[in-house]
Nucleic acid binder design. Structure first.
Lengths: 416, 416
DNA sequence: GTTGTTATGTTCTAGCCAAGAGCAAAAAGG
DNA sequence: CCTTTTTGCTCTTGGCTAGAACATAACAAC
């Protein structure tokens, strides 16, 4: 599913095949036996032997025995090496952040959540940097990178806008680098939380194996991402997937983003609060939105009307996106999943009504996220592994493990 | 730019490199010298010699002398072989169709346009089949495939809907196959005209080398495609890119597609006709739209108002798509290019106004198509070459040229 | 016009890689 | 305890690209 490699020389061929094995181990959650991997990757047994031995030698993988009860010589399960690479994943929200650790195979291990007060980026990110530094100290060279999910559009190393915090154009990576979270330079990768929720869904959730999928993450407003062969479509500068800022439902009013009539104005936690007459407190609407949904289910008329209205807006917007992109499945996370669950009829009716005729006989299914609130952290760690499971990442790792044996040559120019 | 290959064995490595050279020849319009290709593809000179010799032996390529005036041993230009593969490209419209021929490098050669009366698919496509059969007879084994651009959504082998012709769910490929256009089975590929216009722009137009581009083809209504690394995003079933059927401008009324408030209702030839009080005659509005634009330029108030209105709707819709997808460039073809040229201010104002704040400092440029009306034919031929320039296509060709020497093995299973 | 310079094509060898065959190993079944 | 089954390991073989050495064909300078 992740990035292609495309070997040209026999040296690159080896790297490509090492990565194929490594990615297969990772994507399979470190559950597949070596025999299965050999078969799935269409390798000769001898080749698999050599490749796995190489990965074990590089401290990337370790083989564990199986608990199988099959005939024949028992095979083993290549999984994460105890000294192997780990990703640090951060889910940064308006009111708190969570740091987790993921090893090869994707399992999230430690987790640490801390609230933060609204404040200038330097202060808030300084606390995060302290926590990251502690993790990096404990893990040593094992940290392959830090992946950070942000609640706003991200362009390269910059967080462009978090209305609820009043943050504009924050150079997150530079601030963290200034806090020296690691002795050696460490890859710090940033992306939008909705994009990463979609990435997680693509790799370990309901969009697994789906060629074209659409993920929508509804939180305070609507974000999302189109998934292509397991890769999110990030756009030319990384700020793609802002579906919430298209005028899909004929809403009126100016959005916080600066555009007019955005879809987000009618869906999401803020819309629920506004529709029930509440005051939108920046970054504080999640619990209130849950409360409104609960009230609606309990029979409160005003809450029910708000729920139905947002559900309709959700369905209508989804239909427009399905018309445009022809996805195979649409997944919903955050409040989107709640709307689908608790106001299914309203969502579905608006959805079908908005579809082009020829799409109505077999419309793409609307599915709730398989990962729930975990998704963002999973996506952040997958982003780190995406960068790591490349010729470049592998080369860097092997250099660190054994600087002399250069199995993966960085680059080279022909004679000319 | 086109499809990846991803070799795993040394045999596949050779195929991969043969295709890299062949694609480089094709993408470069058969203009690059062998020395340039060697450098661009980062090959050793010896490797280039072997690869080019192999391609020449397979009658895929022929080297022509250069007219260069440089020092050193003169290099030559690999270009299309006189007995090499050709693509047949068809631009099928509501009132006529055009057949053209393209050789490796993309040059369009013969061209034949014929009008057709509205009628049942069998009759109209029968005439097209006759023309194709004649071309295939003349070209023999050289025809690598037929690419057909259709003025409506295409799912696999089916043309789903052409409102202006009253066609629904037409099995185009099956009908052509029944007409036996070739003795041996021939790849017949179908796609939407707007998608192919975008594909052409990506390969030989203004989206060349652009990682993420958006092409919009405005004809009777609005179609388009997102271009990713030179590949159009076709969706799960091939019906992606129907941007015209999102409710982006708050238009009222039911669209011919079955949805409500579609963007297409306010842009395009039909909208121009409708806005000037004219009657929309199915499939006949192209000249009238041009006339209205001319009148507007000449000072006619009603025509000018219609022009401005559609231009505004165009700009507004584009801004929504830019918000969502963050393209690097947006290209416009058909009436879209005319609107951009003749009502630039209205388009631009609406475009900027609809953008999210953080996109306004450096908004993606709106550019007119570099290929104009040629684009659809170019795109149809590129689609054929995309399928041909793959291990599968190369294998089939080499089998036909010399059935014994199997340089490209089709597939294989390991010992197990 | 002869020689030098430069850039490119060709040929040959070395090194690397994966496929595959044969053998060894490790389990279950009888 | 022996057979069957499945997998891992080792070694050979064929194929591929890199790179060096050589050949070639132009221009440039004298």
């Amino acid at each position: 599913m992740p990035g292609e490699t495309g070997a040209t020389t026999s040296g690159q061929l080896r790297v490509h095949n090492l990565l194929r094995v490594l990615r297969a181990v990772h994507d399979g959650g470190a559950m597949r036996t070596r025999a299965q991997l050999t078969h799935d990757l269409d390798l000769a047994r001898g080749t698999a032997t050599v490749l796995v031995a190489d990965l074990i030698g590089s401290r990337l993988v370790r083989e564990e025995p199986t608990v199988q009860r099959t005939r024949g010589r028992p095979t083993r399960v290549p999984g994460p090496h105890p000294d192997g690479p780990v990703a640090l994943a951060v889910d940064f929200r308006e009111d708190s952040w969570t740091v987790a650790m993921a090893e090869l195979g994707g399992r999230l291990t430690t987790r640490e959540t801390r609230p933060h007060r609204p404040g200038p980026p330097e202060a808030v990110l300084g606390e995060l940097a302290d926590a990251l530094r502690a993790h990096v100290r404990a893990l040593g060279q094992r940290v392959a990178g830090v992946g950070i999910a942000m609640p706003g559009p991200v362009r390269g190393d910059r967080l462009l806008d978090v209305p609820h915090l009043g943050w504009r154009d924050v150079e997150v990576t530079a601030l963290l680098a200034a806090s020296r979270i690691a002795a050696a330079p460490l890859p710090v990768l940033l992306d939008n939380d909705a994009t990463l929720a979609g990435l997680a869904e693509a790799r370990r959730g309901a969009l697994r194996g789906v060629a074209v999928g659409l993920h929508l993450h509804v939180d305070f407003d609507v974000g999302g991402t189109l998934i292509l062969d397991g890769r999110p479509l990030r756009g030319a500068h990384g700020t793609g997937g802002e579906f919430g800022h298209m005028p899909l439902t004929g809403a009126s009013g100016v959005c916080a983003c600066g555009a007019t009539g955005c879809w987000s104005l009618g869906v999401g936690a803020n819309a629920l609060v506004r529709l029930t007459g509440g005051e939108v407190t920046p970054g504080q609407g999640r619990e209130e939105a849950q409360r409104i949904i609960a009230e609606a289910m309990a029979g409160d008329d005003r809450a029910a009307a708000a729920l139905t209205s947002t559900a309709r807006a959700l369905g209508q917007g989804v239909s427009a996106l399905v018309n445009a992109h022809d996805p195979q499945v649409v997944t919903l996370s955050g409040v989107g999943a709640d709307l689908r669950t608790h106001a299914e009829e309203a969502v579905r009716e608006a959805y079908l009504h908005g579809l082009m005729m020829f799409r109505r006989d077999r419309p793409p299914e609307l599915v709730s996220s398989a990962l729930g609130s975990e998704g963002i952290l999973v996506g952040a760690s997958e982003m780190v592994f995406d960068a790591f499971l490349t010729p470049r990442g592998l080369h860097a790792w092997q250099q660190a493990v054994s600087p002399l044996a250069g199995s993966v040559a960085e680059h080279r120019r022909p004679t000319g």
